[in-house]
Every structure is written in C-alpha cells, then in structure tokens.
C-alpha cells in the first residue's frame, strides 16, 4: 500500500500542472465568470447556451420561480451545474490523454526508466499505479473543483436573488442536493472504468511505439478500415466512439439517453450489466498485460 501511495504521489508531483493546477485554474476562471454574470458585469449568450441575469426580467421566469416545486427547481439547477462543470472535465480529460500517451514513452526517452527499475517496484505495480491514478484518484481530485464551482454558483445566485428581491436567499440552497456530490464521484469513477480500454490502449502505444501518437492511431485506423472492407461492419469504430463519450450516452447503455442529467448510482449497475462493459474490461486487462510486458523489455541501457 505504501508503495502504491509513493508511486501515485510521484505521478501527481510530476504532472501537477495538468492534474492539479489546470483544473483549479479553470475552476477559478469559471467562478469569476459566474460571479461577473450575477453581479451584472457580463453575460454569455450563444446559440446553444445562455448564461445571463436578463432572464430574470422575464415575467414568466419569475412566475416559474415563485410556483415551481422543489423537484423541478432541483432538476433545472442540476442541468445548469452539469454544463458549468464541463470545461473542468474537458481540461482533465486532455491532461489524462497527454499523460496516457506519454507516461511510458517519456521514461524510456529520458532514461529515467533505468532509475525507476533499479528500485524494488515491479512493472505490474508501476503500471497499476498509473491506472489507479487515472481511474480512481483523478476523479477525487476533480471533485473538489466541481464542488467549489457549485458552491460559488449557488452563493452568487443566492446573493443576486436576495438583493434583487426575486426569491429569498435560502431558495437555491433548499433545492440543492448535497448528495449529488456522491453521484458525481460515482459517475466519474464509472466514466473512468468505461473509458479504461482507451486509457490502456494509449498507455500501451506509449509503451511499445517510438512515436506514441502514431502507435495509437495507425493500428486503430487500419483495423477500422479492414473491418469496414471485410466484414462491412463498424463495431470497432462505434466501440471507440462510445468510449470517448459519456457512459450514459453509449449506444449499448440500456436506458434512454438524456441530454443533460446527473446520473443515478443505479445507472452504474445498468452499465455493468452490459456486455460492452465487460468486453472493455477484458480488453483493458489484455492491454495492461501488454504494457507490463513491453515495459519489462525496455532495457536499452548499455555503456558498451
């Protein structure tokens, strides 16, 4: 356990910019935007997304706020908060993508691999520490940022509503479900498991290919094209496409996809019950074994 903790701490120290600073900076920027909107300094209006206090000048909106029951308010609020958190999730997703591709390639390139392997840590433990970091630990690091964003949003809205005599200060807070924090973390963990085949594939490419990006893309492109030509199917492409998106929106997810919603923990059972999920897990296991194999063979050290 101590070894795993030391390995994970090492990864966080090395990748603190992508894993810790970047999501926090995005959270701070988003918080500033939210505060600016509620204090009337700016507003955001695009074709897809409106974030402005001008809607509270609308009589209908005000009437809805006065009459809506708590479940309706909670539902609307959740949708808004999910959208607000998307930039944080995208930031960590990019950081994870870069990490997966580079983690085994970089240690080989800068030859630190020889130092890491001179210590009594098995290749399997090292590989599993990186998988655990991505699947289990990073969601835990992202969660406080999302919570902070939620709290700043709620506080700004409460102050805005109270000072403008729209609704009382506690109106927002009574509809906010604090148990959503658990839903979010379980949803993120489920996402990590759902996308594990991609994580493992990218790490595998970094472990075996001199150019990890090419190593990741070329074999997939070849297999997808071959499948299309020979079998006239696109199962592999759909498999990858599904893994890139949210798990609740995958084609194999046995529940009607909704645009924006906070998942129920019971949805995770639905995901686990799909064949696709277990195919992904089996593939991930196979790829992890491949990473361990290639890492253990990367001994290109010789002074002779």
């Amino acid at each position: 356990m101590n070894i795993l903790a030391a390995l994970i701490r090492r990864e966080l120290q090395e990748h603190k910019v992508g894993f810790i600073y970047a999501p926090f900076i995005v959270t701070c920027v988003l918080s500033l935007v939210i505060i600016s909107v509620y204090f009337g300094l700016t507003d955001i209006q695009t074709a897809e997304f409106n974030f402005t206090t001008k809607i509270y000048e609308n009589e209908q909106a005000l009437e809805w706020m006065a009459t809506a029951d708590i479940r309706q308010i909670t539902a609307v609020m959740r949708s808004g908060l999910v959208v607000l958190a998307l930039p944080i999730l995208l930031t960590i997703a990019f950081a994870i993508l870069a990490f997966n591709l580079s983690t085994f390639a970089d240690e080989r390139k800068d030859r630190t691999l020889i130092f890491w392997r001179s210590l009594p840590v098995s290749d399997l433990t090292t590989v599993m520490s990186k998988i655990l970091l991505v699947t289990l630990i990073l969601p835990l690091i992202v969660l406080p940022n999302i919570i902070l964003l939620h709290l700043i949003s709620l506080l700004s809205a409460s102050i805005f509503f109270a000072t403008n005599d729209i609704v009382p200060f506690g109106w927002v807070w009574s509809a906010y479900s604090f148990t959503d924090w658990f839903r979010i973390i379980f949803s993120l963990w489920a996402q990590s498991l759902w996308s594990l085949p991609l994580t493992a594939w990218l790490m595998f490419a970094g472990a075996f290919a001199k150019r990890p990006i090419m190593g990741a893309l070329v074999p997939i492109a070849v297999v997808v094209v071959l499948e299309g030509i020979v079998l006239k199917t696109n199962y592999i492409f759909t498999f990858i496409e599904d893994r890139l998106g949210f798990w609740t929106r995958a084609s194999s997810f046995p529940k009607q996809s909704e645009e924006l919603r906070v998942v129920d923990v019971s949805d995770i059972y639905l995901m686990i019950s799909t064949q696709d999920f277990w195919i992904g897990m089996a593939l991930s296991t196979f790829l992890i074994a491949g990473i361990v194999y290639f890492r253990s063979r990367n001994n290109d050290y010789s002074s002779e």
Partner: peptide
C-alpha cells in the same frame, strides 16, 4: 550506471 538518470523534474 552511467546512463541511469535521476528524474530531472524532481
């Protein structure tokens, strides 16, 4: 070893 490099970022 002469080629064992300690991680520079640490």
């Amino acid at each position: 070893t002469d080629v064992a490099v300690l991680p520079k970022w640490m």
